[in-house]
């Protein structure tokens, strides 16, 4: 794998200078906020003496300050597991995860709690990621409370958060079920922003949303990045979504990264046959262009199949 920063370092530096407030510790390797090296994750299985099932087989990927790393893959590729490992929600069995120079792959619960201000998450399903019995105000002040912010200060921050994700202030006293999917996802984004984190893991944040709602939520995520300089590790199965929001893209297949690089390169003219297959399978909204793409895909299918060792369905 080539060094992650080989492309246009000046622009990246501009970004850092422009957006990132001065931080106490200098990042170990300059612009990599998150560095994942040779990560392995294995889930224990039920039964006596049964072996754990490894779902990530040595994955290396990095997220730059203020930038978005898009992780694309199909179901079972391990992309969600990678995001959960960064959050400390998946059992890491090998490799390292370095955040801002600190090794976090095996951080204890109390160390994790300290990191909550730096790493946050937006989950896929806005219906189960919000506790149905808590008001929006309670949901948003929960992370604040964990960092010792409460009372009037917390309420002020919650109002600002709602404003930032463009929800009315009176949402505070309402329950999640009174909101549509897109609005709930805005609440989830506001919760992730509450502690002004430096990295947000976005786990399929728009895949449960309607097309127009998806566009608005993506707009919001981009706007937030512009304003705050937050980095995203953006996980999605949709190559179009990944292309739209990412600076760099990594393609996952069966627990490994088969290709990564600049977004434009990987998503428009990929080198790896799997990425190419993924690209050609994604339909375009014009009948004639789509017919052309379909022919390309079919022509490519046989070749891909031999390289991936799969039958051409």
């Amino acid at each position: 794998m080539n060094a992650h920063g080989s492309e246009d370092p000046a622009e990246v530096l501009d970004d850092i200078v422009g957006h990132i407030p001065p931080v106490s510790a200098t990042p170990a390797r300059g612009k990599h906020l998150l560095d994942i090296v040779d990560l392995r994750v294995a889930y224990p299985t039920k039964g006596f003496l049964s072996r754990p099932v490894e779902v990530l087989h040595g994955v290396s990927v990095a997220v730059e300050e203020g930038r978005t790393m898009g992780l694309v893959g199909e179901s079972g590729s391990g992309k969600t597991t990678l995001g959960r490992a960064v959050l400390g929600l998946a059992p890491v069995t090998g490799g390292s995860i370095t955040f801002d120079g600190h090794e976090i792959a095996h951080a204890s619960r109390s160390e994790r709690r300290k990191m909550a201000a730096d790493i946050q998450v937006v989950f896929q399903d806005p219906y189960t990621s919000l506790n149905p019995s808590m008001t929006i105000g309670d949901i948003l002040s929960e992370p604040l409370g964990s960092q010792g912010i409460s009372g009037a200060e917390a309420r002020k921050r919650v109002r600002n958060l709602l404003d930032r994700v463009k929800l009315p202030v009176d949402s505070m006293d309402r329950l999640p079920r009174e909101f549509s999917g897109g609005q709930r996802q805005r609440v989830a984004i506001a919760r992730a922003l509450a502690l002004e984190p430096r990295l947000i893991v976005c786990d399929e944040p728009v895949s449960a949303l309607d097309l127009s709602t998806q566009a608005r939520v993506l707009d919001l995520l981009l706007e937030i990045q512009e304003q705050t300089g937050v980095s995203y590790l953006f996980v999605s199965h949709d190559l179009d979504v990944i292309r739209h929001v990412s600076h760099r893209v990594a393609v996952m297949y069966k627990g490994e990264i088969v290709e990564q690089g600049l977004s434009g390169k990987v998503t428009e003219s990929p080198d790896h046959p799997y990425t190419r297959r993924l690209m050609l399978a994604s339909p375009v909204p014009d009948p004639d262009q789509q017919a052309k793409r379909r022919e390309e895909r079919r022509a490519f299918a046989a070749k891909v199949a031999s390289q991936l060792g799969e039958p051409a369905a």
């Binding site: 709690r113 990191m115 989950f123 189960t128 990621s129 992370p143």
Partner: peptide, 15 residues
């Protein structure tokens, strides 16, 4: 295993 419990963990709440 609900996502909102995961989210609370990520938000730094104690068990």
């Amino acid at each position: 295993n609900e996502l909102y419990v995961d989210a609370a963990r990520v938000a730094g709440l104690s068990d």
